[in-house]
Design a protein around this nucleic acid. Sequence first.
DNA 1: TCCATTTTTGTAATCGTTATCATTTCACAT
DNA 2: ATGTGAAATGATAACGATTACAAAAATGGA
Lengths: 338, 338
Amino acid sequence: MVTIRDIAERAGVSVATVSRTLHAPEAVRPDKRSRVQQAIADLNYAPNAIARQLRKRRHETLIVIVPEIANPFFSGIIQSIENIAHDLGYRVLIGETQDRQDRLDHYADMVLSRAAGGLILLGSLLPSAVTASMADQRAIPFPLVLACERFEGLPCPSVAIDNQAAAALAVRHLWETGCRRIGTIAGPQSNSLGRDRLNGYRKALSDLGVNLECGWMEEGDFSIESGHAAMMRLLGSGGNLDGVFCANDEMAIGALQAIRSSGLTTPGDIALIGFDDLRFGAFATPPLTTIRQPTGELGETAMRMLDALLQGGVVDHRPVLLAHELVERQSTKQRVDN
Amino acid sequence: MVTIRDIAERAGVSVATVSRTLHAPEAVRPDKRSRVQQAIADLNYAPNAIARQLRKRRHETLIVIVPEIANPFFSGIIQSIENIAHDLGYRVLIGETQDRQDRLDHYADMVLSRAAGGLILLGSLLPSAVTASMADQRAIPFPLVLACERFEGLPCPSVAIDNQAAAALAVRHLWETGCRRIGTIAGPQSNSLGRDRLNGYRKALSDLGVNLECGWMEEGDFSIESGHAAMMRLLGSGGNLDGVFCANDEMAIGALQAIRSSGLTTPGDIALIGFDDLRFGAFATPPLTTIRQPTGELGETAMRMLDALLQGGVVDHRPVLLAHELVERQSTKQRVDN
DNA sequence: TCCATTTTTGTAATCGTTATCATTTCACAT
DNA sequence: ATGTGAAATGATAACGATTACAAAAATGGA
């Protein structure tokens, strides 16, 4: 491996001069500077980032953790994180956990051992180092920002939307467009997203004075397939629904097909509303009405929070809630406005 | 920051003993070992990975580069890469380029500067360090494996399917199910995937003795939206098509909607076949006939190649071609078998 | 008890940078 | 020429781990 010492030798200068040509070229005289640059080119030298980091104790590498990259919802968030990160001089790497604690801990170890500077967590799992610190009432052991999910009482900055309110909005929309027997395909209840959205559904119904009848609720795991299966169960359970709120778009896409394959139509027989505003939802048959989360803003806010944390600033631990939005397409009946 | 020296001091031993308790506990006497472990727990010590890497010159971090994580096709590949990588003791991070050279080079720099051990490249862009080395007839400057795309004459291991043959298979399938005027929505011609699939289309037509008429071909950029737009152009160009081969599933999903919104049906009026076998394609209306790539095998092969490279082995530079498969669903007419 | 082995331990060099500080070189005025 | 201050350079100590190698301690047999 070619090191700074090899360059120094070949250029007939000291290692300090080489280092300076690299980081403050104006501080070294042009003749030496060009000799050094020549040597660097000749030997194809690239400074060893490991050694430099050891010396500088600064980290330009951040990690964004997602449960699964296959989920297109995360991509918008990640993209905006990356854009901001880039501007702020960081490098972003993405880690996928597949909801496995060991994988997550593996990535957390990178931060614990200073191979990376900080973590943005998009999933519903917490690194065990964080859980442990909570249990011991200690501070969180590294720069951490939470996005999308909510963790009660975790002392770190977080950003999300008000999932419960957004879910309630979706249900109200179904009601306002004429649905009277509104069911739901809920997300996994192990996770705050799933719980909040189900609570929103419940709250909206009770605000509307509707009783949640048995056979109106099924649970999925946010996948297309689970949405399909849950819809089949709803259809079979005699709930006699005319509208269904799905806790995300992927399950709604599965549900859509279940409805059609049962010989029913959307929105004619059963209206459907999803959550997340996936690109694929807009091109489903019929195009899916949904709740849009401000993915760009979500990512940007999270990234700026992490930057503030890394700059040593103290960041407010109260969750930042961003605005959501109803996107009306053809899977719900049209509102009669006037 | 708490270092190994702090632990040594608190436990009343030397740093060597601490290091040994960490990596070869059986080599240190139980009493000291437990004193050290106690000190580690007390001070919440985590060894500095940077320092260790500098000393050990080994890399357990690999980078997988994708053009955009939003593309669900890549997720299957990445997942299998991660599974194998994990078993082999590597840590995988994902970098997204959004087809921008500067981003790609940024990740390549991490390998060049030894912040990571190697690269698996899934996109159509090459790091400039690699292009430069090719131009100078030098060897590629770091462990690199290519998956999915093909680069003529690049001396490094690669794995893919035979895109041209697969595209030809798709076109033949349309023919065999009765289509006689077969158009295509091609991928970007800047990229080998797009080119190979278009060549396959051309070759299949000429093998079938069909003349490619004007108005049968439009180009998209692999996105849903571009597929929609391209299909609208095809419909307007008077090519009078009864079947269309789309160079990927996302464009096919866009095309599907364009056809429907024009009052036509699939496969009745126009049959459609895609490429990649996305999950969303299986749940489209109608479910999409497509070509499946063996994503799992693709990822596994790439990862094993990179491991071999990192182990210092010499790996064959001839591209490894894996088998593809036709997945018949309802967007093409049913074959009359007998 | 004492010597020869075998285990355990500690000291110090090393990895490739950066940064401090002392030293040398330079430009310029006298 | 010479003195001065500024600019450029070099030697070297960090950064925090790992690991030869040497030294010390423990073990065991006589």
